[in-house]
Design a protein around this nucleic acid. Structure first.
Lengths: 139, 139
DNA sequence: TTTGATTAGTTAGGCTTCGCCTAACATATA
DNA sequence: TATATGTTAGGCGAAGCCTAACTAATCAAA
């Protein structure tokens, strides 16, 4: 490997460490350090679909309705989600993310934003512009 | 958020997507797409400690010896690890990573290396030098 | 050098949690 | 009255851990 690539490796390794640290912060701020990958996946699905019902989530995730009830009850206990009864049809409940739930569903984005904040503290405007200009070329 | 930060967000989001794609490639090349986070953790521990025995790994990970036997048997079936009997003391077995096991233990590094390779294809030498110079300032 | 104690790893069996299921149900709507 | 939404009850298998009892190898001391 060339010297140049090795250098690149080192600076990006550092950058990823910083971003990783930010990810962990997001979870521990929510007091949910031991949430599972699967659970985060469900929160993301709920976030992406907006107005999801229990049956809807069951279809999307290919689970039975009781399984969804169970998953949602757990999320309610974790304060990530709440039931929102449909005003037009009392049988239907929408699954809504709490602020905490949304935070976790978008944890990667939040971590990245945190990293960018740190970047803005370490670099000046010209340097940021140069970064943008160079990295835009990546495919 | 300023325009500049938003731009930075976009370029880094793209970069992370590329790196993430590389991570998945590493696992699927090994035919182990459904390995768990915990398992990867154990492989990393084994990799980092070099010459680990069963008792050693039990102490490091605070598990019982039978648990380690179980974990290692699973890894042997996955072809990630093999037993290497100590020539001086027949009671002792060293836990060694196979090439596959090492690949997974170092998957993040491998993914990053892959990303750097892609970078080297998209950017010229001056640009890479500029990147290195700017990103070195990040703390 | 033999024998008893100690150490390394294994086997057997058990426990809890997770994540899923089906069947039967209550409630709301049509 | 028939149908749709969500819940409850109960069960199942896999994961991931444990303790107790075992085998095999080494060490130490008579």
């Amino acid at each position: 490997m060339t010297d140049r690539k090795e250098h690149l490796y080192v600076v990006f390794e550092n950058l990823l460490k910083i971003k990783n640290g930010c990810s962990c912060e997001v979870f521990s701020e929510c007091g949910l350090s031991d949430i599972t990958v699967k659970q985060v996946g469900y929160l993301k699905t709920i976030d992406e679909h907006g107005e999801v019902t229990f049956s809807g989530l069951a279809k999307i995730t290919r689970n039975s309705k009781p399984t969804i009830t169970e998953i949602i009850n757990k999320f309610v206990r974790m304060e990530c989600v709440y039931r929102d009864r449909c005003p037009d049809d009392g049988r239907i409940y929408y699954i809504r993310l709490t602020e905490k739930g949304q935070m976790i569903a978008r944890s990667e984005k939040h971590a990245l934003l945190k990293m960018i904040e740190k970047m803005a503290h370490s670099l000046d405007e010209d340097e940021m512009d140069t970064l943008i200009q160079i990295l835009s070329k990546m495919k």
